[in-house]
Simulated assay, not measured.
Amino acid sequence: MKSSDTGMEGPLKEKRGEMIAICSSKGGIGRTVLAVNLAVALSKSNIQISIIDGDLQFNDVSLAMDLHPTFTIKDVAESIDTIDKHTLPSYMIRHSSGVKVLAAPERPEFADLIKPDVIDRVCEMLLAQHDYLIADTGVGLQENTMQFIEKADQIFVLTTLEMSAIKNTKLMLETLDALGLKHKVQLVINRSTMESAIKASDVPDILGAENPIYVPNDFQIVSQSINIGIPFVLNQGKTDIAKSVFKMAEQLISRREISLFKPKPASIFHMLFNKNKGNAPQS
């Protein structure tokens, strides 16, 4: 839709959507499940939502939404010099909810073909045309994941009550804090009602995080959702787990602020390698 079709001109073209990077320190924590369900929950507010499958080796977003994409980000990378924000949508696949997905490559070995400049340009084009861009990232702090984190307006860091998840999440949060990104981090305690020696209420103190989001455990609902490729917010909307995701979507929208395009900040990697210099007292 052109800006003239909405009766809005000028400044609209300079605004960008909000990007949310969904991360975790280890696999199997629920990044993809949260990404697709949050995206669908947001779409119910009649706003434009897109997902980029940033776990470039495994294409789990398409599986979780029962999508069979004709094109992937690999095709975008191969034509990046001729693609703009108007042609990029033709490389995406539309879910029945209205969410548009840019799929990861169909094979793991193709992940290395997706260079940083491709991710950077694709994200900017998607943000120019969508209210929210959800990035389902890879595990940990690998290079591609760090690039999504750098661009994101909010970083959702998932953990569970498992000791190994909490230990790794603490290290991840400390690293993000050292990079000056703590203000963008939102801790999400997934499967917060599961049986564990660690109580969900103890996790914020352990991790030094304030006001976490709690997502209850419902293995049956999540497993069924993945197996049939239907996000549970669509067909299990009255369950506690779906209500927790809808609440997340409502909170995002209620505080949403569309920012004007700003000059690209210093690279996170530059910050990482120069943090000692950056922390020196200023004269």
Rank of each mutant, 00 (worst) to 15 (best):
Ala111Phe: 00
Met125His: 03
Ile149Met: 07
Asp202Asn: 07
Phe110Gln: 15
Ser90Ile: 11
Val99Tyr: 02
Ser164Thr: 15
Ser90Leu: 13
Lys182Arg: 15
Asn211Lys: 11
Asn144Cys: 11
Ala104Asp: 09
Asp117Gly: 01
Ser192Glu: 05
Ser192Leu: 04
Leu126Thr: 02
Leu113Arg: 08
Ala103Tyr: 00
His95Asn: 13
Arg191Trp: 03
Thr160Glu: 12
Ala197Asp: 14
Phe110His: 13
Ala209Trp: 00
Glu150Val: 01
Ser164Ile: 12
Asp117Glu: 14
Ile155Ala: 02
Thr137Phe: 02
Ile206His: 00
Leu173Pro: 07
Thr193Phe: 04
Ile149Phe: 00
Lys184Cys: 09
Ala152Leu: 05
Leu102Glu: 10
Asp131Thr: 13
Ala104Gly: 09
Gly180Trp: 00
Pro204Glu: 08
Ala165Phe: 05
Ala200Thr: 04
Gly140Lys: 01
Lys184Leu: 09
Ala103Arg: 01
Asn190Tyr: 01
His183Trp: 06
Leu187Cys: 11
Pro212Thr: 12
Gln147Asp: 09
Gly138Gln: 03
Gln147Leu: 15
Arg107Leu: 12
Ile149Arg: 07
Pro108Tyr: 03
Glu124Phe: 02
Ala111Met: 07
Arg121Leu: 11
Val203Cys: 01
Ile166Ala: 12
Gln142Cys: 09
Val101Asp: 04
Leu207Gln: 05
Pro105Val: 04
Asn168Thr: 11
Ser192Thr: 06
Phe148Gln: 08
Leu141Gly: 10
Glu162Phe: 07
Ile149Gln: 08
Phe148Cys: 05
Leu176Gln: 07
Leu126Tyr: 01
Asn211His: 08
Leu133Trp: 00
Arg191Pro: 01
Gln142Glu: 14
Ile114Ala: 03
Ile198Lys: 00
Tyr132Ser: 12
Ile155His: 00
Glu162His: 12
Lys199Cys: 04
Gln129Arg: 13
Thr145Ile: 03
Leu158Ser: 05
Asp205Asn: 11
Gln186Val: 14
Leu161Ser: 06
Gln186Lys: 15
Arg191Val: 08
Ser96Val: 13
Leu171Glu: 15
Gln129Met: 08
Val185Glu: 07
Arg107Tyr: 08
Thr175Gln: 14
Gly140Val: 06
Val157Gly: 08
His95Trp: 07
Gly180Asn: 07
